[in-house]
């Protein structure tokens, strides 16, 4: 597909604020649960969501999503209040068009 026709993406760097460490499967599962309940299957399909990086030691990750769904994805992240019965807070550190510029966030 030519570059001009490709969908524009945004990367969202986030931290899961909690004392417990979680693996990427836990985070992905909770995020998709919140997303399906908030915007439904049709809306979730349009977000093109993908957990591209996850660092278990610092509970930090990078989400990739469609440019049109950035705000919906951020709201869905905030709706996750528990992972494995542990209270958590998703904190958005930054939103960017490239992974490189997220390094400074």
């Amino acid at each position: 597909m030519p570059k001009s026709m490709r969908e524009k993406r945004r990367y969202i760097k986030f931290v899961v604020d909690s004392d417990k460490r979680f693996d990427d499967e836990d985070v992905r599962h909770s995020l998709w649960g919140a997303m399906l309940s908030f915007i439904g299957e049709n809306g979730a399909a349009r977000t093109n969501l993908w957990l591209s990086n996850w660092d278990e030691k610092s509970n930090t990750g990078v989400l990739r999503c469609s440019i049109i769904a950035v705000d919906e994805v951020i709201v869905c992240m905030k709706l996750v209040t528990e992972i494995q019965e542990e209270r958590v807070n998703f904190i958005v550190k930054g939103v960017s068009g490239t992974l490189k510029s997220l390094e400074t966030c």
């Binding site: 604020d17 705000d71 951020i74 709201v75 930054g94």
Partner: peptide, 17 residues
């Protein structure tokens, strides 16, 4: 409490939604 805080970018996302 601290686990309920919302950053400015997140509040803007709530507003736009």
């Amino acid at each position: 409490d601290m686990l309920e805080t919302v950053t400015p970018r997140e509040l803007v996302a709530f507003g736009t939604v």
